[in-house]
């Protein structure tokens, strides 16, 4: 780094230290630890499954109850009639997708199919990291179909932070189809990302499903 840039940094940091005399040389670990008591004071999310369903629906998600994982291809086909090309999460590749043409090219595929790393009940949110799902798959497709396993449902954002691989270079919280209100405050679905967000909900809490990575 050129000298003048590093000295800019030092000048700014020196001013910051001088301005925050209350904590000039604190260690970062101590700062993290100085967070107020860990217990969340907000009202508990008592019924996370119903909370998730309620919130996701009001965010504009289409919710589908999936009785059994092998049913997923049929369920997707019935919800998205006429869809032929599918950009599928490789972890779901072992299911019987013979009714579809699978592709790796997300930019031309009409429909993406992905497994959520987690769900957040508090806001009806789906969580992805690009360790497992390409960011472009989440955003370039017209329709996004998501498989959510209820065993991965978290109550609040804070719980989710601890449950996911947050060192990934991209973590995406997706809470509904793409939308905009930039024209006359009118909410319009399908701004730049998916126009539809379908969530296939599988209750695997009694018999957890595992995927080969």
């Amino acid at each position: 780094m050129p000298d003048n840039l590093s000295s800019t940094r030092d000048r700014i940091m020196a001013r910051i230290r001088a301005a925050t005399a209350e904590a000039p040389n604190r260690e970062f670990a101590a700062v993290l630890a100085s967070r107020p008591p860990a217990e969340n004071l907000l009202a508990p999310v008592d019924d996370p499954v119903n909370e998730f369903l309620k919130r996701a629906r009001s965010n504009g998600c289409e919710l589908i109850d999936l009785p059994d994982l092998p049913e997923l291809p049929v369920s997707v086909a019935s919800r998205l009639p006429g869809i032929e090309t599918l950009a599928a999460d490789e972890r779901l590749g072992y299911l019987d997708w013979s009714a579809f043409r699978l592709t790796d090219n997300t930019s031309e595929a009409a429909t993406g199919l992905v497994l959520a790393d987690a769900g957040i009940a508090e806001t009806g949110t789906l969580v992805f990291t690009n360790r497992t799902v390409a960011s472009s798959l989440l955003f370039l497709v017209d329709h996004l179909a998501v498989l959510l396993l209820l065993s991965r449902l978290q109550r609040r954002q804070e719980d989710t932070c601890r449950a996911i691989d947050r060192d990934a270079s991209a973590v995406h919280l997706v809470s509904g189809p793409s939308r905009t209100a930039d024209v006359e405050q009118t909410i319009q679905i399908g701004a730049h990302g998916p126009r539809r967000l379908l969530v296939f909900v599988l209750d695997d809490r009694a018999s957890p499903v595992s995927f080969v990575q």
Binding site: E122, N130, R131, A134, S135, D167, S169, S175, G193
Partner: peptide, 24 residues
């Protein structure tokens, strides 16, 4: 801001694409 409990997308970016990641 918009009266939404959360917006459609909240994303967290940490560094360039790392080894083994899908894209970025």
């Amino acid at each position: 801001a918009t009266g939404q409990p959360i917006t459609a997308y909240t994303s967290f970016f940490s560094g360039p694409r790392a080894q083994g990641e899908q894209d970025g």
